[in-house]
Amino acid sequence: MLTLERLEIVQDDFRLTADWTLPMGARAAVIGPSGAGKSTLLMAVAGFLAPTSGRILWQGQDITAIPPGKRPLSILFQDQNLFPHLTIAQNVGLGLRPDLRLASDDWRQVEGALERVGLGGMGGRKPAQLSGGQQGRAALARVLLRARPLLLLDEPFAALGPALKAEMLGLLAELAAATGATVLMVTHDPGDARRFADLTVLVADGVASPPVETAALFADPPPALRDYLGREA
């Protein structure tokens, strides 16, 4: 259970507040106009940005002061999710131990994770030798090995074509279901939210609203969402 307790983030003249709880195992989309603070919210949860006030809790434990790598979460960024100078297997292996001192058992686990995402036998390649979709799969394999209960996604598949993106979201849903992970995913595509997320957080006008049922939200959008969606709604 992720709790944002009277969270407030202030940067110059930008301000964002959030005060809500996301239940365990939920899959939530974060949508809203660009510049509203979707990524900022994620960066605060991930620990790259210290909130001005308020607390972030996981299962009732305060994690606000914990460094990013030690938080009970994994995050995928828009780009640069793999180190280009390391092989795919090394990149995935970082999910087991950040110092990469892996035993042969660990390497077998790495290969297993690669097979699981459809990259069996490709561990020796460098990221540049992989397609965009394959790079996304490699990053997901690392998420699998990190096995953290919370997964944050900052539009990692936005650069992929529609078919490939749907495929990646399918794989993601499968992995999340298998590991029971709680997912918070930023997207600018309402279709992603409807297909993938049972809950949706709307970020607009300086407020990240509490998560509500995605279907219900789109059935009767509040004014801020209606403005964002335009005539589509």
């Binding site: 990013p68 790598g69 994994s74 640069q80 950040p98």
Partner: peptide, 9 residues
């Protein structure tokens, strides 16, 4: 950020 998120310190 990637290094930070993986605890690479």
């Amino acid at each position: 950020r990637l290094a930070g998120s993986l605890g690479l310190v």
